[in-house]
Amino acid sequence: MTKEQIRETVFRVLGQIAPEANLNHLKPDRSIRDQMDLDSMDLLNFVVGLHKELQVEIPESDYPKLSTLNGCFDYLASRKNAA
């Protein structure tokens, strides 16, 4: 799976959670949660969405690695390629 495919998936899942948000304005190295005003339920839905789309298990202890866009891309790429 290419980095571009992972990127597309992350944006698609975020879009489902917050359809009204403008994802193009997100800064890749800042907290997604702060920028989009997500709560814990949104975060859970985000992780569930990623799990469904990419078929990767994401333990709760890894949640902090998903806090920025770049973090998401790196973490998911490594999980996907390890799998």
Partner: peptide, 14 residues
């Protein structure tokens, strides 16, 4: 509890 659970079944403290 969440360690034992798949992503979909996890609970939030709320």
């Amino acid at each position: 509890e969440n360690l034992k659970r798949s992503v979909e079944d996890r609970l939030v403290y709320g």
